[in-house]
């Protein structure tokens, strides 16, 4: 029994992080048809900014603030203003290629600056564990679950309850109609990019203690994000369900399968979704193709 509880917590913790990144990925796809192939690197990078800030002597909380602020500026604002706005007029394919290239730029850049070795990253709440019965639950996993769930709930409330949030949702659901209804679609899209940057920064801070900070983290994180978002059906609720489900399955696989077969999971899930439910778990088939 204690193993089950431990697996559950570990699954929820990683799943909630995948969900954060998958929500952001979905928001970008829906509001601006941007398929951000660099999303994994967007989750990898902020942790390194935090480490950099700590290296120059800032305390951990201040370094986190710097990391989030830098993400908002670079991965949100600048990414939208320079890369997306400039290239999307040439079409979706050049933009997709540009984000693929951007992922490589971030990955190689971090490798050149921080080196190829994985660096330890301080976990929120320290390294202690909570004993519940025979189960040992890492405090930082519990904190990760609470923070991620709070962020997701807050975002949902913002998107559902406030006029601004509803305008962003309308833009995500159908940009053309939203424009006709008088919603400033371009501004809403900019907000979506900022939200994505905040989500990936949060995901980065929560997940990096588990994986250590490595320049190549974005590969696996990105793949899991894509799988969660696509299997969920490219909508916000689907991204949450997809992320959590993938977190569970991934942790189960890590416990019971060899590394190779664990690595086969994204492929198996994607092919199964494509064959049996191309619109995704929570997607509706009458949705217009994105």
């Amino acid at each position: 029994m204690p193993e089950v509880l431990q697996l559950l917590v570990a699954g929820l913790a990683t799943g909630a992080v995948y969900a954060l990144a998958a929500i952001g990925f979905t928001l970008l796809w829906q509001t601006s048809q941007t398929i951000n192939f660099a999303q994994g690197e967007f989750v990898m990078l902020p942790a390194f900014i935090v480490l950099l800030a700590m290296n120059i002597g800032l305390p951990f909380p201040a370094a986190i603030l710097i990391g989030v602020a830098a993400s908002l500026l670079v991965l949100g604002f600048l990414f939208k203003q320079t890369v997306v706005d400039r290239i999307s007029r040439h079409g979706a394919l050049p933009l997709a290629i540009a984000t693929i290239a951007l992922g490589l730029v971030i990955k190689e850049g971090v490798k050149d600056v921080a080196g190829p070795a994985a660096l330890p990253f301080p976990p929120l709440g320290g390294t202690s564990s909570l004993a519940i019965g025979a189960a040992l639950l890492p405090v930082h996993s519990l904190i990760a679950i609470v923070v991620a769930v709070a962020a997701i709930a807050g975002l949902q409330a913002f998107l559902d309850r406030t006029p601004l949030g509803r305008s962003i949702q309308a833009t995500a659901q159908n940009p053309a109609v939203a424009r006709v209804l008088g919603i400033p679609v371009d501004r809403m899209t900019r907000y979506a990019f900022l939200i994505n940057a905040a989500l990936t920064a949060l995901a980065s801070i929560l997940v990096t203690p588990v994986y250590l900070a490595s320049f190549s983290n974005g590969e696996w994180l990105g793949l899991c994000t894509f799988v969660a978002a696509l299997a969920g059906g490219l909508n916000l609720r689907g991204a949450i369900v997809g992320g959590l489900a993938l977190g569970f399955i991934d942790n189960l696989a890590a416990a019971f399968l060899s590394a190779t077969w664990r690595g086969a999971l994204p492929l198996v899930i994607l092919i199964a979704v494509a064959l049996f439910r191309p619109q995704g778990l929570l997607g509706r088939s009458e949705e217009p193709a994105a």
Binding site: I35, F226, L270, V273, Q279, A289
Partner: peptide
């Protein structure tokens, strides 16, 4: 699927 799935499937 109507969505572009090939990049993700080939990545996986």
């Amino acid at each position: 699927a109507r969505r572009p799935l090939l990049p993700f499937i080939t990545l996986a």
